[in-house]
Design a binder for these strands. Structure first.
Lengths: 200, 200
DNA sequence: GACCTAATGCAAAATGTTTGCATTAGACTG
DNA sequence: CAGTCTAATGCAAACATTTTGCATTAGGTC
């Protein structure tokens, strides 16, 4: 195996794209019923109507294919909703995020994305999606004149704790966890603004 | 495949233990030179001096074996060092933690542990190790009469942000990142103690 | 419309995985 | 300490998956 091109699609218009869609669809279908552990390339190939060797050549192995499907699945479909305030926007977005990620399917897809970390691509892509959505919310707030924490701060103290629970513990974070973390980070941002350079 | 017993060892005294050690050692050896992707069970079996079927029966597949090795590798070897103060203890421990986890090998082992999440065992075990070490440090501080944040708080706001960077981004968190997060969480704990029920 | 490249299908070869059965290590009992 | 019993291992054959060379085809380019 050399370097499988994965998602990058040199000929997006034609057969390659059709096959990619077909294979992705087959994987999603099979995942609904079968366990991940007993998901085979020949099986996927048959449902997708392609030869196994095609899958091996394009994706390398099942895990890279799963990671590819996971990234597609975890890509946000729309911009975060505008509720009129930072607190509202962030709460709404994080609630949706947790609901999506903490579900059994979300957890599994996230693990798929993390697991194949060769060059760190799939997981990085997911983190980039998240960061993009957050920055949209935060910039919108700044445009309104609200005080907004840095994007990195929100990732560190809201997203990261939730993802840690999802990946490393058996517990399922709930909407209330998300809300509490959002409240805390915004409270701190406001406190820091009210008392600038608090330490000196 | 039914339910591979994995690490649980009904007969810890004898041959089973020898074989487990031998196989683990073989995996660690092979990982030093070969890429994870081209690591095969027959190869491991040969180096360990066992039959492939033994590995399949005990571990199920390569990934579960890798996860098993990862958990062993990520198990702390000793109690956190006592530097005389919470700030010192926590800083020292987190520095060591980051150094261990952010290295290429640490990242890879962590991914292995997270990837095989069937019942969530391997990753949970790692999180439990971390929590245990943290609680040791925090309880030690409380015994000294120091103000210490809750273990969950430290996990959420120090460990989680670091792990998020390790798993989801290309960046390598440094010792300074760890120190900054520790400083911040302790500062907040002290502030909360100084001004109890700040909100009311 | 003719050419050119890269992706696909096909089939054979190589490799990896599973399984039934015999054997052995080690635990337990008296 | 010997006898017995259980579960783990080895072995080898059956089975499945993965790789690879070659012919073909889709689709982009001039």
């Amino acid at each position: 195996m050399v370097v499988p091109p994965t998602t990058a699609n040199p000929r997006p218009g034609g057969r390659s794209a059709r096959i990619q869609n077909s294979v992705h669809a087959a994987v999603r279908t099979l995942l609904e019923e079968h366990d991940r552990a007993q998901l085979s390339v020949p099986q996927i190939a048959q449902l997708a109507g392609v030869t196994p060797s095609t899958i091996y050549r394009r994706w390398g192995d099942v895990h890279e294919l799963l990671a590819d499907v996971a990234v597609e699945r975890l890509r946000p479909e729309s911009a975060p909703e505008d509720t009129g305030s930072l607190h509202g926007d962030l709460t709404a977005w994080m609630e949706q995020f947790v609901e999506e990620m903490a579900s059994p399917e979300g957890r599994a897809f996230t693990r798929d994305a993390v697991a194949f970390g060769g060059a760190g691509r799939p997981a990085c892509q997911c983190a980039a999606y998240t960061r993009e959505q957050l920055d949209t919310v935060l910039n919108r707030a700044r445009d309104r004149g609200e005080v907004a924490p840095a994007g990195q701060t929100v990732v560190d103290h809201v997203v990261a704790p939730l993802m840690y629970r999802i990946l490393f513990t058996a517990e399922t974070p709930g909407l209330d966890d998300a809300r509490a973390l959002v409240d805390a980070v915004l409270e701190r941002a406001n406190a820091a603004q009210t008392t600038p350079t608090a330490g000196i």
